[in-house]
Write a protein that binds this DNA or RNA. Structure first.
Lengths: 378, 378
DNA sequence: ATCGCCGGTGTAAACGTTTACATTCGACCA
DNA sequence: TGGTCGAATGTAAACGTTTACACCGGCGAT
């Protein structure tokens, strides 16, 4: 049923109801209405209820734009990502949203897609005062003088770092340490020839992971073969490309350490399209522990980043700085440690010589119930 | 290096540079500056370059809030979801962002999480004029008088429908038809006892899929057993719960049709934790074709929703209506058909009697190269 | 020479709030 | 009884744009 007989083409639906309409109806001044909303204790009981009725009757909602203009604050923060679809982000964003929402802030999500036009667009959006703060995941925001921007609007870096900028707070995983531990794990299982598929070459986090890989090899007294360090990116495609390289090289590594789960997925998928088996012929380790890491075939052994914590801490850091530096000063750099998640994509080399196969498999399955899959209420 | 000697506690960093500063510097009026930006052809060549220099020298960026207030338009649209992390959304959102960006609109993403407080929050955000349009994925926005809201700000429904509201445009998949075809596919492979795990009971799309399931069974002359219709939700957990039910029932269905890929993943994971095999002991079909559908074990046979198209059409629809009804009127309801993606989670029943195993498997693998995995550039 | 027109510019009024300051009025105290 | 204070309210000036309108020359047409 078309309940309103309104004419088509909605001829500028009159004018929206303003604070003046309410004031008029309640027979008070606009100041009183405003105060009733913002500081009720300053308004007499009787007047207050008069105003409330007028508000209800007119269906008034304060205009956010006008309010922002006058208050010089939009109560919005920008979360700037590279690839909304990247499943690594999701639980971080959830945690962030949670914290921001409780603090009365909204969140604008922007996706730069590594596209200069978009980067410029969001840069302008920030300069135009459309947000009170920025959470930056992208590792760069060209065209922006960060120092200048950060003087106007607080910026916090999440899970990425920007070289040559030392004035911005960072919340991230202990990438180097985590990568080292993963490679140590592989070495501990008897692997000696371990390749590494890196993230994007200029990404600081990716470089840290590469550093950890080197650390572990060095510590184990193994040679570091540059021919086994394959440049990639945080995407499934990069894994596909690296897999071709793996298939071509000889002798083949017995284990592949991927700088992200998406890379690992690309590796597994492509290698399995041949007659080779994962993990029987080659072990593959990921990084991140994305939601689907536990349900792919085989379930992925990986480093779990504490994503919820990363998000929460980043949001809290930003909130504190938007509030104006009161309270305890935030640390410049927060580094959280990761957790090794053992599933089935990694296997001990020469298993028969080291331990009974079944026993070992049983041990690996210990964490089996934890599928790593996103939980959500019905 | 702390390059600015600015005192700590950033004492309200002076005042931001306004159009007046620029006007003063270029020795023209604010109107001229504004015109230079918005309609350069109205300004004399010489004046124009004067203004440009002044803008460059001052580093002026027009304040978006003031602009919005005056122009009565924020150039922003709200995408309201239920669960940012839901991987079904990603490519839809990408397509939407693409279209909106080209049209000069920004996107605010809101996640209601089926939480009334959040729903109310976003409702208020819309009423407060913070956005020029809304793309609604959530199926409901309580506390809002949709008709009234839609009179102020255009709303377009994406991949969901709201009962009893007939005034809002909808862009969705042909759910009923797609579900019917999937079940026909199962029937065609010899399955006679097919269970269905539904989405949330009040979700219109989920109900349509249930309808398609019934249609197919009826058309095939098979009985519809309400004991094989299991209420679920669009989440992995729902699959886990349904799997327990599957394991308890007797005789067991030979095929399970899940209303979403996430459900199917929960089913597979749980069933495989027993001694049963998918697809040897039971076939499992999904719906959506999310990014990871091709890499889970086994790769999921599913109905691919044309997600990019859905997003694009929804955004275009909204854009058209925000522009003010000029041009061709939009259809009230767009329904796109889905594509059956055959992978390996579904197998013909009594395969030995119907065709040589290897041949059949080969046929299934035809689409194998298409992993359905998100591609992205490095 | 007068008129009209047009390109180029300035003046000032919006847009819808919040809030500093002024005002009013009664109560309380000296 | 005059003065002071505080509670309750109103007045009006911001916030930083855009834009309707007015204005001013100069130039072509009459």
């Amino acid at each position: 049923m078309a309940r309103t007989g309104r004419s088509r083409r909605a001829a500028k639906p009159s004018r929206s109801v303003t604070i003046r309409d309410v004031a008029h109806r309640a027979d008070v001044s606009t100041a009183t209405v405003s105060r009733t909303l913002a500081a009720p204790h300053l308004v007499a009981e009787a007047t207050r209820s008069l105003v409330y009725t007028a508000i209800r009757e007119t269906g008034f909602t304060p205009n956010a734009t006008a309010r922002s203009l006058r208050a010089r604050s939009t109560k919005m923060v920008l979360a700037l990502l590279n690839g909304i679809g990247n499943s690594f982000y999701t639980s971080i964003l959830n945690a962030i949203e949670e914290v921001l929402f409780e603090a009365g802030y909204g969140m604008i999500m922007g996706d730069t897609r590594a596209d200069p036009r978009r980067e410029a667009h969001y840069d302008e959006l920030v300069r135009a005062g459309q947000v009170d703060g920025v959470l930056l995941f992208t590792g760069r925001l060209p065209g922006a003088d960060f120092a200048a921007l950060n003087a106007t609007v607080p910026i916090t870096l999440v899970c990425n770092d920007i070289p040559d900028i030392d004035s911005l707070p960072v919340v991230e995983s202990a990438n180097r340490d985590a990568a080292r531990r993963m490679v140590e794990h592989l070495v501990g299982l008897g692997h000696r020839r371990i390749a590494h598929v890196t993230g994007p070459p200029h990404n600081v986090e990716a470089r840290e992971r590469l550093g950890g890989y080197r650390d572990a090899l060095a510590a184990a007294g193994l040679p570091i073969d540059d021919g086994l360090i394959w440049e990639g990116a945080f995407a499934v495609d990069a894994g596909v490309i690296a897999a071709r390289r793996f298939l071509a090289v000889s002798p083949r590594p017995t284990a592949l350490f991927a700088a992200s789960d998406d890379i690992a997925i690309g590796l597994i998928k492509t290698i399995r399209d041949t007659e080779l088996s994962v993990p029987d012929d080659v072990s593959i380790a990921g990084f991140d522990d994305i939601d689907y890491a536990g349900v792919i075939d085989p379930p992925l052994t990986t480093m779990r980043q504490p994503r919820a914590d990363l998000g929460r801490l980043a949001a809290e850091n930003l909130l504190r700085r938007m509030a104006g530096g009161a309270g305890k000063p935030s640390p410049r750099r927060v580094r959280l440690s990761c957790e090794l998640i053992i599933r089935q994509s990694v296997r001990a080399i020469a298993a028969a010589e080291r331990a009974p196969r079944t026993l070992r498999a049983g041990a690996h399955r210990a964490g089996g119930l934890d599928t790593g899959v996103r939980r959500s209420r019905a």
